[in-house]
């Protein structure tokens, strides 16, 4: 079963914005005659997305950003699209579940740290056991990464059953202050997700810009062979890249589990959206992946507001954006010229 994230994310799915399509075409003359509209009216007419959709979009974007940054890093530095990245998020979600109630009941924040560490170890272990040992081209690595994704999921299904589960932690209720002031239903969980994502993204920025390892990583990303020639130990850079990608993916997986449910296919189902974000931002650009993640995440949640597109086609919309970008600007909005 695919759980529609709107139903869980949207505090008020029924009243969440009315599309222009639903209203039918509005005569332009009439719109002009109305003059500038007050915000409330613009929202009612579907000209502006309402605050609730934007809040949902930001929360979903956070999860996408966490996933797509790691995916972009691996794509760039290891030079293959890692189809196991979505399932790495799933591993993070389940590892946290395992120590957060399923097998052991640690306090949730501790469980997240332990689960993230475990998932990161899985990412690094996979690199050592599988990808690093293969003397093959990017296409073969890509195919092998699908195998890795399946092995992850198979082990999780055997260990945790194929069904859906949820974290035993509170914070599901909307924050009253936000509700009264902005008329937005944002839960405590969602606030934590937003804050933690901002922290992680800022942390990554500081790491990339102000530490020696971060600079080496950017150099390797810009030109792998040149970095090797200039004495950068690319092996260590690749290792750190898997750690960074693994941590972000695992935390993203936990957040996805908090927002929807913990399911064996949760990460694989998100893969298309992650790739759309990475390609939109431009493969090889971490900041592009962040921007792409925000755009795709917002579009995904704003579908109810976009005319003529039924909500159930939110993923199709992400796919469409990806195809359009490939048609008009394959290097992405912030990418260099690595289209060939």
């Amino acid at each position: 079963m695919v759980v529609d994230s709107h139903l869980v994310l949207g505090g008020d799915p029924v009243g969440a914005g009315v599309g222009l399509g639903a209203l039918g075409p509005l005569p332009v003359a009439q719109m002009i005659a109305l003059g500038p509209l007050p915000d409330a009216q613009m929202i009612a007419l579907g000209l502006l997305p309402d605050a609730q959709l934007i809040a949902n979009g930001l929360v979903f974007s956070s999860i996408i950003v966490l996933g797509s940054v790691g995916l972009s890093l691996v794509y760039d530095i290891a030079d293959f699209p890692n189809f196991a990245h979505g399932d790495l998020m799933t591993v993070g979600a389940y590892a946290t579940l395992a120590v957060g109630g399923f097998y052991v009941a640690l306090p949730f924040p501790v469980a997240v740290v332990v689960g993230t560490a475990a998932a990161t170890a899985v990412a690094v272990g996979t690199h050592w056991l599988v990808f690093d040992r293969m003397d093959v081209g990017p296409l073969e690595l890509l195919i092998a990464s699908i195998g890795v994704a399946f092995v992850y999921r198979a082990v999780l299904m055997q260990a945790f059953t194929s069904g859906s589960q949820s974290y035993d932690v509170g914070g599901r209720s909307p924050i009253p202050a936000l509700r009264t002031v902005f008329d937005v239903a944002l839960t405590y969980r969602q606030l934590v997700i937003l804050a933690a994502t901002v922290l992680l993204v800022v942390g990554l920025h500081v790491f990339l810009q102000y530490t020696t390892m971060g600079r080496k990583m950017r150099a390797t990303s810009a030109n792998g062979s040149l970095a090797k020639v200039s004495g950068i130990r690319t092996g260590r850079v690749v290792l750190v890249m898997w750690v960074v990608g693994g941590v972000l993916a695992a935390v993203g997986g936990v957040f996805l589990g908090l927002e929807t449910l913990v399911r064996p296919r949760m990460g694989f189902d998100l893969l298309l959206v992650l790739f759309a974000a990475v390609i939109l931002g431009g493969i090889g650009s971490v900041y592009g992946a962040m921007l792409g993640g925000v755009v795709i995440g917002m579009v995904h949640e704003l579908t109810p507001w976009i005319p003529l597109v039924p909500t159930r086609y939110d993923k199709a919309l992400a796919f469409l954006i990806m195809i359009l970008i490939l048609l008009v600007r394959p290097s992405g909005i912030m990418g260099g010229g690595t289209s060939r």
Partner: peptide, 12 residues
């Protein structure tokens, strides 16, 4: 799960 595992392990 076992089918998935077989497919994944064989591909790798």
């Amino acid at each position: 799960a076992l089918q998935l595992f077989l497919v994944g392990a064989l591909v790798i």
